[in-house]
């Protein structure tokens, strides 16, 4: 606790999905540069509670970058100024004493605000439910090596599976497109033999669902890839397009 900073926070406050939101300005003092961004918000909330004010609502859970719950659009970037990390992994050493920090929720038609900085990301769950699974017959546990899979394929499927579904891709995209998320979810299964069986049905069902939920189209600006905390590559989007077009022309 050798170095501390004082900050001005501009935080989005909104009572509910249908209410009109606005920015509220707060001062936080003596924040350790070693604390995480969410710890800084905890301190702000303690302060608000002690002043008998409503604390700021924000999403968080594991606080170690794997659950995909934290969000926050900080100073014009999803998950803040650091690359390849989630908001919970962002530290206050990335900010300077006296900085003004603007904190907003993800903005997309398909992600309505629940309260303050929390948004409803159940649209992602609906996309997964539409086809992001494999059907298997129950029975004895198969041998781990029964189906040989080339190492490069396994690696690429694993890179896609790193997606935690946080929604930063949608938040970063000028079109609020969910293509990076969807492509990761389609890729992780399309690359493996177990996923090939339902590949056509899956691609069409998930793409249709994404459209129905009001996400935008992909303009290949690569903003999603730049902001993804898990560095999911847009090459998965090319695979998704391939899978969808093949399935469409074949049906």
């Amino acid at each position: 606790m050798d170095k501390t900073i004082n900050l001005t926070l501009k935080v989005w406050r909104q009572n509910g999905p249908r209410e009109k939101g606005h920015f509220e300005t707060y001062q936080v003092k003596n924040i350790s540069v070693d604390s995480s961004f969410l710890e800084m918000l905890d301190i702000l909330n303690e302060q608000l509670i002690s002043e008998n004010k409503e604390p700021v609502a924000f999403d968080h859970d594991c606080r170690e970058g794997i659950c995909g719950m934290c969000s926050l659009y900080i100073n014009g970037r999803p998950h803040g100024p650091d690359d390849d990390v989630t908001t919970c992994q962002l530290h206050m050493r990335r900010f300077k004493d006296g900085d003004t920090v603007t904190i907003e929720p993800w903005r997309a038609k398909a992600f309505p605000v629940i309260k303050d900085l929390m948004v409803n990301r159940s649209a992602f769950d609906e996309i997964i439910a539409a086809g992001g699974y494999v059907s298997v017959s129950t029975g004895g546990v198969p041998d781990g090596n029964a189906i040989p899979i080339p190492k490069p394929d396994a690696d690429e499927a694993m890179d896609a599976a790193a997606c935690i579904g946080c929604g930063a891709c949608v938040a970063a995209c000028k079109n609020a497109s969910a293509m990076l998320f969807l492509s990761a979810k389609v890729s992780q299964l399309a690359l493996l033999p177990q996923g090939r069986v339902e590949a056509k049905r899956r691609a069409i069902a998930m793409v249709n669902k994404m459209n129905e939920l009001g996400f935008g189209a992909c303009t290949n600006t690569r903003a999603c890839e730049a902001e993804c905390p898990k560095s999911v590559s847009i090459s998965h989007i090319a695979r998704l397009n391939r899978e969808f077009l093949k399935a469409s022309f074949a049906s």
Binding site: R107, F111, K174, S177, A217
Partner: peptide, 23 residues
């Protein structure tokens, strides 16, 4: 695509580095 962005826009200007022409 404009409709997909929703009615409330971001207040902070976007700082994600992307290809200018693509946008």
């Amino acid at each position: 695509n404009r409709a997909a962005r929703g009615t409330d826009r971001y207040a902070a200007s976007n700082r994600t580095v992307t290809e200018w022409s693509s946008k």
